[in-house]
Design a protein around this nucleic acid. Sequence first.
DNA 1: TTGAAAGCGGTACCAA
DNA 2: TTGGTACCGCTTTCAA
Lengths: 349, 349
Amino acid sequence: MPYVMVQIPNTPAPTKSPAPRPVPTSADVARLAGVSRATVSYVLNNTSAVRISEPTRRRVQEAAKELGYVPHAAARTLRAGHSRMVLMPTLPVPAGPLYSQFVHDFQGALSRLDYTVVQYGATGLRGDDAARAWAELRPVAVLVPTPGIGPEGVAILKRSGARAVVTLSPVAVEGARSVRLDHADVGHSAAAHLYARGRRRIGVVVPEEPGMEVFSTPRLAGVRAALHGTDATVTELPLVYTEESAAALAARWRDLGLDAVFAYNDEYAMLLMRALQDEGLRVPQDVAVIGADDLVLGRLLRPRLSTVRIELPSGRDLAWLLDEAVRDPMAAPASHQQCVATVVHRDSS
Amino acid sequence: MPYVMVQIPNTPAPTKSPAPRPVPTSADVARLAGVSRATVSYVLNNTSAVRISEPTRRRVQEAAKELGYVPHAAARTLRAGHSRMVLMPTLPVPAGPLYSQFVHDFQGALSRLDYTVVQYGATGLRGDDAARAWAELRPVAVLVPTPGIGPEGVAILKRSGARAVVTLSPVAVEGARSVRLDHADVGHSAAAHLYARGRRRIGVVVPEEPGMEVFSTPRLAGVRAALHGTDATVTELPLVYTEESAAALAARWRDLGLDAVFAYNDEYAMLLMRALQDEGLRVPQDVAVIGADDLVLGRLLRPRLSTVRIELPSGRDLAWLLDEAVRDPMAAPASHQQCVATVVHRDSS
DNA sequence: TTGAAAGCGGTACCAA
DNA sequence: TTGGTACCGCTTTCAA
């Protein structure tokens, strides 16, 4: 039992040297102001159904300030039976610029709708265990930004009081509003593009960083699906996000005999493209390169980087979707949003 | 009163059509298993101080599973008087790769130490109000990754039970462990470098994206400080992170008469450098360019981008620091960590 | 081995 | 206009 927090109301700590003053409660405020806890609650929440005299009001506020009183969210939530917390599990990998922007917008929009967004540090739990961990916090809504939850998980959350569960997932999840987002589409688009441009021996970069498989596996699968039944071949290319790893891959490029590569995303594409060029290979003549995510930086390369742009819903739209779902959990989702993946053809492919 | 959660224990909802079953509690589990709530608690928490017979144990577990019981974190926290939650306010701007990586590591390390990290969506509150909002959650520790808290805020958090407050801040904050991190150092290093390379008319990119001033202001101030009293001039260059904005800036570059630019960070630097080159300016002959953050991608440019590397503490180190502070809040911080900014001189300056 | 009951900090009903 | 008080869900003595 690591941290015993000694709670000794109204009594200076006994012998322990660094007496940790107990946290002030509304009862302390009431006592200091000479009123009841009820009155404190009324004043501090500006309860409109109740009129409190101005002098009393002031006394309470001064007492609260003097004690440095801060209400206890857990107690309030417990009593109220609900909260305005929207929970979003953090990604299993460091976020890219696209996703960071999305989260930022999403949070901003929900703040304006008077929700509190909380990103919950994934503890390595999976599936239903993860759902249970989230459910312990009794959020009013949950946004799962990966295909990391099934109907079971959704049921757990709803049974625990969540009024809305929104997922970004390739398949609709029973009970949740799912915005369809399939990373296989990205791979599919990239592969179809390369194939249409006459490429047949196609490499696919697979990042070796742990956790990345959540995204890289479907992207690779999309490539395979697009090329299935054609005369094209698919070659997996493990790559770490370092210059050295890219150089090593480029060094054995001629042996691989590939004429195109889908580089997972723009960042890996930029890394690899530079290494290929340093190796004396011409892009796109010797090898076509395409990335994904349509980063600004990709446009700066020469040749300009072709990419697959994935149309994430704006954070604002998703916030509204979520709010609507919270307000009327039973309403059928108006329309099944879908994130489309479109090729942005520039000069590298 | 938007969401009235009707709690009718042991009674099917009355008339309301989509009967929202009340969330199951440990009392429900107890009832179904035919035991007391105490026993349920013992079983579900594997309380070692108490022996529960195997049959009872199983009955409880089955009842819990059948009801889909999930314990209520707020209730537990309230009763226990403390939690293992580490709160970290989200940045006011979308995170860059450097910070994303840091947060990821930090979370992973704290998870292993059995903490739960929660990124709290900033609601636009500032200073002490923000501190109060964080304090409502009664976190065991708070990491403030910006200079967004003062001694007052720290006091509020500590009075509310936080056993540790850690800040990444240019100045030590009374009561908190501060890892010294001053973005002015970044500007200072960049400016000193450019000056040493003989540059005298120095531009400083100032991102126009809202919220960015948290970082851009000190970086600019650092440049000014480094050049104060010399014969060099400093010119602010507002820039939006788009090709168009960069092109517009580059178009009037010759009129500006600058021979060097500190571009806020590597991403802006890459953007601007490309625009300058497209305008026919030679880097570094006509204009020296230096960024910051030492991104991998900067090394891929030609000329390779000079940069200022800022040595963030590793997430793991900071997690340990925090854990130590939690375990012994009174102990003086062993050593004042400091994030140094060092110039990585490559070819663009 | 199990149960009864107190109490964590707030809120909101009902009385005064 | 205010105070008393019964909860919210869970843990943890103390008794049985």
